[in-house]
C-alpha cells in the first residue's frame, strides 16, 4: 500500500496543532499501527494511550477524520481520503498530551450511582436468576468504557452541561436498575437535573449508539427505557393511580 499522510494533533492542555507524518503503511494496518510506527520511527515523545489492540480495553479512543473511533479497530483503507487521515484526541475531554485526554471526570460521575443492592439470599445462601431475566442487562455488561459515547454526546461536547451523567452512565444505571436481583431505586437520581444524573438533558439524538464500538443499543435499550421509568414514576398519574389502586408497588422479589 502507498504512503499515507497522517495529520496528528500534537499539543497539551494549553495549545496544540496538527503535525504531518508520512507513514509507509502495510495492508491490514489499523490507525493505531500507524501511530505506533510514528512513535517508533519519527516522534518518540508522541503520547497515545493503548493497551489490548483488540477493541476490548477501550483505551485508544480518538477522533479519526472527525469521527469518534477506537484507533485499534479502524482499518486505514477505510479512512484514507486523498491520501490523508486526520487523528485527534477526543474533543469533549481536555487533552493531557497529544492523543491522551483526561477522562477522570467520568469516574466522579460513576461514584454517584448506588451499587447493586441485592435482595436477601435464598435459604441455601445463594441467589437464582432465570437466563431470560438477565439477557437484557448482559448487553450493558459489554461496555468497555472507551467513553466514545461521552465524547460524541452533544450535551457534554457542545453544551458542556456537566450535570448530565452521559450515555455511559445511563448504561451503567440501566444495568443496575433492570437487574432482577436489585432492590435499589435510582429514579430520583436519574430525574434530578442538578445533583443527579440529569436524564432529561438527553434529547435522544442517538449519536452514542452510532459510535459504540461494542454495538450496545444505548439509546433504545438503556436511555429510553430509563426515561419511560421516570415517566411512569413522575409524569403518569394514571399509572400511579392504578398502581396504588391495585396495590402494585414493585414486583415481588422473593
Amino acid at each position: 500500500m502507498a504512503e499515507v499522510r497522517f495529520k496528528v494533533w500534537r499539543g497539551d492542555a494549553g495549545s496544540g496543532n496538527f503535525v504531518d507524518y508520512d507513514v509507509p503503511v502495510t495492508e491490514g494496518w489499523v490507525v493505531l499501527d500507524a501511530i505506533h510506527w510514528i512513535q517508533a520511527n519519527l516522534q518518540n515523545d508522541l503520547a497515545v494511550r493503548w493497551n489490548c489492540k483488540a477493541g476490548k480495553c477501550g483505551s485508544c479512543s480518538a477522533e479519526i477524520n472527525g469521527k469518534p473511533r477506537l484507533m485499534c479497530m479502524s482499518r486505514i483503507e477505510d479512512f484514507v481520503i486523498d491520501g490523508t487521515i486526520m487523528v485527534q484526541p477526543m474533543a469533549t475531554f481536555p487533552p493531557v498530551k497529544d492523543l491522551v485526554t483526561d477522562v477522570s471526570w467520568n469516574y466522579t460521575v460513576n461514584q454517584r450511582i448506588p451499587p447493586l443492592a441485592p435482595r436477601p439470599p435464598e435459604a441455601d445462601g445463594t441467589w437464582r436468576m432465570q437466563q431470560y431475566d438477565v439477557d437484557r442487562v448482559q448487553e450493558f455488561r459489554q461496555c468497555i468504557e472507551c467513553f466514545l459515547c461521552q465524547d460524541v454526546c452533544h450535551v457534554l461536547r457542545d453544551h458542556q452541561t456537566w450535570a448530565f451523567g452521559g450515555p455511559r452512565f445511563m448504561v451503567r444505571t440501566a444495568s443496575l436498575e433492570m437487574h432482577p436481583l436489585d432492590t435499589e431505586n435510582r429514579l430520583s437520581l436519574l430525574k434530578d437535573a442538578r445533583e443527579g444524573l440529569g436524564l432529561g438533558y438527553c434529547n435522544i439524538t442517538k449519536c452514542c449508539t452510532e459510535v459504540c464500538p461494542e454495538g450496545i443499543h444505548i439509546t433504545d435499550n438503556a436511555i429510553i427505557p430509563l426515561k419511560e421509568r421516570v415517566v411512569g414514576e413522575y409524569f403518569d398519574p394514571l399509572a400511579t393511580g392504578l398502581k396504588n389502586l391495585l396495590g402494585w408497588k414493585r414486583e415481588p422479589r422473593t
Binding site: 436468576m129 432465570q130 431475566d133 433492570m178 427505557p225 419511560e228 411512569g232 414486583e251 415481588p252 422473593t254
Partner: peptide, 9 residues
Amino acid sequence: GSVDCWSCS
C-alpha cells in the same frame, strides 16, 4: 419493559 424480574412477577 418496566419489569425487572419477569420470572418472579
